[in-house]
Simulated scan of single mutants.
Amino acid sequence: MRFASLGSGSAGNALVVEVNNTRLMLDCGFSIKETTSRLARLNLSPEDLAGVVITHEHDDHAGGAFKFAAAHHIPVWLTYGTLKMAERYFPRQHDLQLNVIDSHTPFSVADVEVYPYPVPHDAREPVQFVFGDGQRRLGVLTDVGRSTVHIEQQLSGCDALVLECNHDSAMLRNGPYAASLKKRVGGEWGHLENAAAADLLARLDRSKLQHLIAAHLSAKNNTPLLAKTALAQTAGCTLDWIGIADQALGFDWRQIS
C-alpha cells in the first residue's frame, strides 16, 4: 500500500492511494489539464484511477473533480449533502457515475477499503477518510475546525497519517485576512491550527505510525517549520521525519510496509 499527493492547500488538493493495482484519488481541486500533469509526476495517467472520493464541496477539493471524472469515465463517491452542493461543478452534458455514501458506512473500491467519517467543517455534509488494505491503514484529516472523540477513534492506530496543520494561531491573528475570514478559519467549523493538530496527535495510538505528513498549510498564516515543530514535539521525532504536503509539488509516493 502506498500514497502520494498531487498538491495540498487552498489552491487545490488531490491525493492518490494505491493498493495492489487499484488507485483511488481523494478530492480533485485542479483543472483537467493540471490534474493530468500532476498525475504524470507520479507516473500515472487518468486511466490508472479506479475512482475519485470527495470529502466536501469546497472548490479547492471538488472544483475539478466532476469534469475530470466525466472526461475519463471515472466513478465518484460522495455524501448526499456534498452531491447537492457540488452540482454547480457538473459539466453541462455528462454521464457521471455518482455513488452516494453514508458518512458512517465503510465501502470498498476493488482492493481499497474506504472508511468515511464525519467532521466539523463549514460544508453541507463533509467527511474525511481512512483507507486500508486489510492490514495497513492510512488516515487523512484536512478541513476540520476541531477534533472529536469519533475522529480520534478513526485515526488511532493508523500506519500513516496526513494531518491538517492549516495555520499558526499567532500568524492568523496578526495576518492580512479580514476579521470575518480570521473568525471562519480559526473557528470550530474552519481549519485545524498547528497546536490543535499536535494535541489531536497526542491522543492517538501512534504505535504503528510509519509516516506523518502535515497538510493543507496556509500560504499566509503558517510555515512548514512551524507545522513540523508542533507535530515533532508530540511525536517525539526529528523535524526531518515529518513530511509536508506542498501546494505546488504535493509529495512523492510513500510506501506503507
Rank of each mutant, 00 (worst) to 15 (best):
V162T: 05
D159I: 04
E164M: 00
A202H: 13
R184P: 01
T229W: 00
L217V: 09
L226V: 10
T223L: 03
E193R: 11
A219Q: 09
L209S: 08
A178E: 13
D199G: 03
A227G: 04
T234E: 08
L217Q: 04
I213D: 01
S207E: 14
L172G: 04
A197S: 15
L225I: 12
Q210F: 06
N166C: 12
L163Y: 00
H216I: 04
S180W: 14
V162K: 01
A202I: 10
S180N: 15
A170H: 12
P176G: 08
C237K: 00
A178C: 04
A160N: 06
M171H: 02
T238R: 07
M171P: 06
L225A: 13
G236P: 03
W189H: 11
Q154N: 15
G187K: 10
A195R: 14
L239F: 03
D159L: 02
K228D: 05
A160W: 00
Y177Q: 11
R184N: 05
S180I: 15
A198G: 14
K228G: 00
A196W: 08
L225V: 12
T238I: 09
A195N: 13
A214N: 09
E164R: 00
L225E: 14
G157E: 10
Q233E: 12
A197W: 10
A170F: 05
P224N: 11
A160D: 06
G175K: 02
L209A: 04
N194L: 12
C237Y: 00
I213H: 01
R206W: 00
Y177F: 11
S207L: 08
R206D: 00
A160V: 11
N221L: 04
R173G: 00
K183N: 09
A232F: 00
A215F: 02
D159V: 01
A215C: 03
H191I: 09
T234C: 03
V162H: 00
A219C: 03
L212N: 10
A214W: 01
G175H: 04
L239Y: 04
N222Q: 14
A235L: 05
Q154E: 15
R206T: 11
L201A: 12
L181K: 13
R173A: 02
L155M: 13
A219T: 13
H191Y: 07
G186P: 08
A202V: 11
S180E: 15
T229G: 02
A195L: 14
